[in-house]
Nucleic acid binder design. Structure first.
Lengths: 163, 163
DNA sequence: TTAACTGCAAAATGTTTGCTTCCGA
DNA sequence: TCGGAAGCAAACATTTTGCAGTTAA
């Protein structure tokens, strides 16, 4: 069994092995970086983080690895409007992204049945939905205190909501 | 007064003049190409079309022009997943895009109140919606004959529906 | 052993820019 | 006239690739 920073195999490493991918030192490092990433890093950033753990990794390898992982359904490529592609691990549950146009910060959220709605729209147009992309670009509202007004049940912020 | 292919000023040219942009020969050609484009061309394609009308245009000029037009709210940049940015003229009414993953063909459609829904979602998250992006990637269904089943009123294909 | 992987540097791609010349208002 | 615009090529930024050496299975 291969280990993460705490001596445990990372989830991504496990997935790689399941798929029969050769686990090199570099891949292990990248897998660990990805497993520990709770944001949406681009290749540059992944390379930076990986390099801290192991200086013998090249950007080319990071590029090749993210592509490989994407092709194997382990990673998903995102485009939040910047010039570079960003990545997040698959299977954290369906969610969308809201990008704070001021800070660049990304907020994940879920919205019940949105995918179903889109599937219906697609069907009406005579198509079968393969995938979709929904991104909201928004500006933080002046912090209204903890007094909820119309809480519409469907929308839900993902993850630890207040740090 | 400047003329389009039929001797009339194009809509885009008019908008440029309104905004006080200097109308050079190249811009006139690009404006005409854009006015006549009913698809979502990328810079390469715009350059190709413009070059047919006037061989003395450089790609750099096309790049500078689309940027200028975008900054002036005349054009909108789109990203349909390919490697290059694509453009369409502003103000044809709000609509979304469905990209046929097989052919690359883009189908425009409207969906009543979708923007309003997204605005509500955004507000629930404590943000103010600035802009959003929604793209459907889909595969054409085997052509079911002209017998509509559940026609959900909201979705509507834009433009000439069957060529 | 050997097919797959890596590093490196070069190349490919899409886009922007510096500079000189040109031209529209 | 003269400031913005065009052409050209060089610069950029991101990503891919060819090749020769390395390594996991």
């Amino acid at each position: 069994m291969v280990m993460d920073s705490n001596g445990l195999q990372t989830r991504i490493e496990r997935m790689c092995i399941e798929r029969g991918l050769k686990m090199t030192g570099q891949r292990r490092v990248i897998a660990r970086v990805l497993s520990e990433a709770h944001d949406h890093p681009d290749v540059e950033e992944l390379y930076r983080r990986a390099s801290l753990l192991d200086g013998r990794i090249s950007v080319a390898t990071v590029y090749r690895t993210v592509r490989l992982l994407e092709e194997n359904g382990i990673l998903e490529r995102r485009d939040f409007g910047g010039s570079r592609a960003r990545y997040e691990t698959t299977g954290e549950g369906d969610h969308y992204h809201l990008i704070d146009v001021e800070s660049g910060q990304v907020v994940e959220f879920t919205h019940a049945d949105h995918a179903e709605l889109l599937r219906r729209i697609t069907a009406e147009l005579g198509f079968d939905l393969v995938s979709h992309r929904l991104e909201l670009f928004a500006r933080r509202l002046p912090d209204v205190p903890e007094e909820q007004t119309t809480q519409v049940a469907q929308t839900q912020r993902k993850g630890r909501s207040r740090p």
